[in-house]
């Protein structure tokens, strides 16, 4: 996708978002799903999702449904990339070791 792997400024909310995705890295979550799991306000959540996506940790795509037949609009689904999984695991591992860089 041509998206570079960059460092992301870690905040408590960012860690909570990463933790939600690390529970099942192959799962695709919408912003509403992440809000339910982390209880982060939308004003904080969406900048974090876009920040992680622009850093190459997340990728996103539209839900493949027909909105008219489903009776609801399609959702934007986020998924952790391989790079994101590795970097997030490193962050939590260093966090557990007491070395958060």
């Amino acid at each position: 996708m041509g998206i570079e792997d960059r460092n992301v400024r870690m905040s408590l909310q960012t860690l909570r978002v990463l933790e939600a995705f690390l529970e099942n890295p192959m799962e695709q979550l919408s912003g509403a799903d992440v809000h339910q799991r982390c209880n982060i306000a939308s004003g904080t959540l969406y900048p974090i999702l876009l920040r992680l996506e622009s850093a190459g940790w997340f990728t996103s795509q539209w839900e493949t449904i027909d909105p008219s037949s489903a009776g609801r609009p399609r959702r934007r689904l986020y998924r952790m990339t391989t790079t994101g999984l590795r970097r997030a695991s490193e962050v939590f591992a260093s966090f557990n070791r007491g070395i958060l860089t």
């Binding site: 959540l45 876009l50 996506e53 622009s54 996103s60 539209w62």
Partner: peptide, 19 residues
């Protein structure tokens, strides 16, 4: 969120995937 996103993108010029 709009203001934060606009500020961050304006400050860094970072690429964002647009779909």
């Amino acid at each position: 969120a709009t203001r934060v996103i606009a500020y961050e993108l304006g400050a860094s010029g970072a690429p964002v995937a647009s779909a």
